[in-house]
Computed example of a mutant assay.
Amino acid sequence: MPTEVRLADGIRLALTTFTTAPVRAGRVDRGAAGTAMALAPAVGALLGALLAAVLLLVAAVAPPLVAAGVTVALGALLTRGLHLDGLADTVDALGSYRRGPAALEIMKKPDVGPFGVVALVVVLLLQAAVLAELAGRSRPAALAAVVAATAAGRLGVALACRRGVPAARPEGLGALVAGTVGPVALVAGTAAVALLAVPAVPGRPWQGPLAVLAALAVAAGLLRHLVRRLGGITGDVLGALVEIVTTLSYLGLVLSA
């Protein structure tokens, strides 16, 4: 397959996987999946720019917490709530103390258990609190923070899809994308997101990149645990990592600011 075609298919797959963008789907295979997962941070940066613009616009006419709530709601809407659903399902599976197929069966259930509900509430509250704080910062710093954190969340997906990480099931999104991201793409994505985070904390150019790297380090540890418990990654695991890395990156950007 020509490189241009694979790139185009990968871009379309990345947009339709991580957003509700009305893009016509192209070829869906492991080649396109690898491109899509490698481009996930770029899609996150675009989404983050839109969310930051909404945050700042609403904050100009409403209290910061209202602007933060609108921004969190819009983020869920623009991703179909899939990442939040993945977070709830993954936490429910971990909270069950079951392993392998038994844990995967819990993740497939349509209902949300108490562990999942608590995880959703905590993550959404933390994100709203941080966004309310960012709404009071300078526009360049707020923009950089939201863009970097949103991109970092999608970089967590690329991390989970790196070579050597298996899929938990022989079918589904996890099977399609597992092991498709090479080390060069992962390193390049990490460097790019770290650079985006540099202006997020005025006067502390090191804090933004450090927040991103710390969030990814936590994600790497959690990923190892999930692979041991589940046998590999699933679409729900990828969604959970998006929300966890995004939230941790946000927290790292406002601590001691």
Rank of each mutant, 00 (worst) to 15 (best):
V54D: 01
D92G: 06
A141S: 12
R139N: 00
A36Q: 01
V237G: 02
V61G: 07
A141L: 11
A185N: 08
H83M: 11
R80E: 04
V187N: 10
T234R: 04
I244N: 02
G100Y: 09
A142R: 02
A211C: 05
D111V: 12
A185W: 08
G189M: 09
G208H: 04
A49K: 03
T71G: 08
V112E: 08
V193F: 13
A240Q: 07
A76W: 10
A68S: 07
A25C: 07
R6S: 04
G172Q: 08
V61M: 06
V218R: 10
G156T: 06
R6K: 07
R229L: 06
I11D: 01
A62W: 12
V91C: 03
T20K: 13
T16P: 04
V165A: 13
E243T: 04
L78Y: 11
G31A: 12
A194V: 04
R139P: 03
P63V: 03
P63A: 08
G164T: 08
G10T: 11
T3C: 00
L173K: 03
R27F: 08
L120E: 08
T35C: 10
T150A: 15
M1K: 07
L51R: 10
L87F: 02
S96L: 02
G172L: 13
S249V: 14
L87Q: 07
G34Y: 00
T19D: 07
L124F: 12
V212F: 15
G221A: 15
G252I: 02
A135W: 06
I106S: 06
T3K: 04
A62L: 15
V130H: 11
G44M: 13
G221H: 14
V147F: 06
L195P: 03
R30H: 04
T190K: 04
V245S: 08
G81V: 09
T180W: 07
A119V: 03
D29K: 12
A240W: 05
L226F: 02
A214F: 05
V123L: 10
L50Y: 01
C161Y: 09
V43G: 02
L226W: 08
A67Q: 03
P114Q: 09
P205W: 14
E105D: 15
A188L: 15
A36E: 04
P2D: 15
V254A: 12
P170L: 02
L173V: 14
L155N: 06
G69V: 11
I233F: 05
V122G: 06
W206A: 15
V146A: 14
L226Y: 11
R6V: 14
V193S: 05
L230F: 05
A14D: 00
V5I: 14
P199M: 00
L55M: 09
H225P: 00
G44T: 12
S138N: 13
L126T: 14
G172R: 09
R229D: 10
C161L: 14
V91F: 00
V112G: 01
